[in-house]
């Protein structure tokens, strides 16, 4: 029986059911990652807001030379009107995506728009007075984006798990 010491067991080969279920499991993992993308977006927005809140000592003051190059700042009232119009359209678009069941995440572009609002207010020396308006708009938009993505992914994961369970039942029945 000494020859058995040198004999090794062959590696475990996955059975047919496991091989068939692998893409489904991969899709579920991907959906789990997608579901938490909104939280990353919200965290990024909070970090951006933290910088904007402490803009007095975190951001360098805009020099007169830069102002001369960039030109006059737009009126604060105009930026505020743009913020209201942007918030309204962003919310309507997210709700329409939610109603049609689309699984697209647009949080990163919203992050860029909100950052632009902070920059415009900072340039117009009106960020202190209008910080909370941009923050509330951003928090609402990013939270709704996260909720939309989370509900979409939860639903897709449930369907994917049902499909896997059905495939497993079928495989057991065949075997």
């Amino acid at each position: 029986m000494g020859f058995l010491r040198n004999v090794r067991r062959p590696p475990d080969t996955p059975n047919r059911a496991e091989t068939a279920a692998a893409p489904g499991r991969e899709r579920i993992r991907r959906l789990h990652r997608l579901a938490y993308r909104g939280l990353w977006g919200m965290a990024a927005f909070l970090a951006l807001s933290l910088v904007a809140f402490n803009h007095g000592w975190l951001l360098p003051p805009i020099s007169d030379g830069a102002r001369a190059v960039l030109g006059k700042a737009p009126p604060t009232n105009l930026i505020s009107i743009a913020l209201v119009v942007y918030s309204f359209s962003a919310l309507v678009l997210i709700l329409s995506r939610m109603s049609t069941g689309q699984g697209k995440y647009k949080g990163w572009s919203h992050l860029a728009y909100l950052g632009a609002f902070y920059v415009f207010y900072h340039y117009g020396n009106a960020l202190d007075a209008n910080f909370w308006a941009v923050f509330a708009a951003g928090l609402t938009i990013m939270a709704l984006e996260h909720y939309q993505m989370w509900t979409f992914c939860t639903e897709a994961i449930r369907k994917e798990e049902e499909r896997l369970a059905q495939a497993e039942r079928l495989e057991k029945f065949k075997s």
């Binding site: 913020l83 209201v84 308006a133 509330a136 609402t140 938009i141």
Partner: peptide
């Protein structure tokens, strides 16, 4: 309730802050 409440409340808060600012 969650999407409707979040949307309406968020938008009203933004408008209220801007109204207060004005």
């Amino acid at each position: 309730i969650v999407p409707v409440g979040l949307t309406v409340t968020g938008f009203v808060i933004v408008c209220s802050i801007l109204l207060y600012s004005y």
